[in-house]
Simulated assay, not measured.
Amino acid sequence: MKNERLNINGICFGEVLWDNLPTGRKLGGAPLNVAYHLNKLGIHTHMLTRVGDDADGEDIIALCAELAIPLTLFQKDSTYPTSTVEVHIDENRDVRYEIVFPVAWDYIALGEKEIEAVRQADFFVFGSLSTRNDISYQTLQTLIKVANYKVLDVNLRAPHYTRERIFELLYYADLVKMNEEELGFVATWLGLPDTDTDAKKAEAIMTTFSINELIVTYGAKGAIYHSWLGKFSYHFPALRVEVKDTIGSGDSFLAAFLTQRCRQDKQVTPEEMLEFATTLSAFVTQSTGACPSYDAPTINRFVWLNSLDNTKY
């Protein structure tokens, strides 16, 4: 990994919040995590969101400024509070979330500034959680229609989704990321047999919704990138690491993948895309929280140490 600035611009839409962890609060929200890593990796990425006009919101704005996340598309709400989430981590390091409703990002407003920003961006990342309330959902529907490259991060958090809204987002998307469990949910909604392989489920989903690219993540088993553009499915294994928590690992995976997928200065192979994505995801998994601090030397050292560890297996 090199420290570099790429001539690519993106926008992430949706929730920004405080994750209240057993060890203290951490900045979070899937699209915010993606924006953080994209900016760390050299892609100028705005976060389009809304916080409350309260102390929690001021703290988020101050921290995002410190983390070099652009603030020009942040909105303030005088009625609804800044979002907080209670995070519970069990003995297996699995995570359960209690997401408060309603909060400020349920009311993201639409204006000419937001429309023009999305129209000019190279890609637009949005998640399914931001569709739980009609106001933000209607804003998202308008913005998707002017976006150039539409990236859906499926993020099913019960009870904050409906099949109908997930299906609509899938119809819009160019690239979709989901995990193994979410693949199963969508396949069931489509009435696919339980006996179908994941490859058949992925193909059916891509066919039904005219999706060109689909990434399915499998945690410790790696990820598979299905592409109709290149007519292939490519599996890449995960790195073996000591897991601290899995918060934000999928978000860092998507950000790292996009930095390679959207490069305009050189051709990048699917193997290179997935290798970089799984590397950053593994680094985040063995760190605390979704947005750990790092730079190019940090990631290079992590790769080197991991290569030494894997020679033991």
Rank of each mutant, 00 (worst) to 15 (best):
N212M: 15
D196A: 09
E180Y: 07
C262D: 01
F253V: 02
S227W: 10
V216Y: 07
K221S: 09
V241S: 02
I224Q: 08
D245F: 05
D194L: 13
Y218N: 04
A187M: 11
D198V: 08
F185G: 04
R263A: 06
L175C: 04
E213A: 12
D245M: 06
Y225E: 00
F236A: 06
L229P: 00
I205L: 14
S227L: 03
F185V: 15
Q260H: 14
G222T: 08
D196G: 13
V243H: 01
L258E: 11
F257R: 02
K177Y: 03
T207L: 14
D194H: 15
I247V: 12
S252L: 06
D174L: 03
E180L: 05
K221Y: 09
K244M: 11
V241A: 03
S233H: 07
S233R: 04
F185W: 05
F167V: 11
A187I: 14
I166Q: 03
M206L: 09
C262K: 10
G184P: 02
A223F: 04
L258Q: 10
A223T: 03
G230N: 03
V216S: 07
G230V: 01
N212T: 08
T188V: 08
T188P: 00
R165M: 04
H235D: 10
F253N: 02
Y225I: 00
F236K: 01
A223H: 03
Q264F: 01
H235G: 03
F167D: 02
K201H: 11
F167P: 00
G248H: 07
D194F: 13
A173S: 09
Y225Q: 00
Q260Y: 14
V186W: 10
K201D: 14
F232K: 03
W228C: 01
G248Y: 11
Y225G: 02
K244I: 13
R263M: 12
F167M: 07
M178E: 09
L190F: 15
L192R: 15
R240F: 04
L239A: 06
T188N: 15
T259P: 09
G248T: 05
Q264I: 13
A223C: 02
K200I: 12
R240V: 00
K201S: 12
E164N: 08
A223E: 01
A173C: 10
L175D: 07
G230H: 02
I215H: 06
I224P: 06
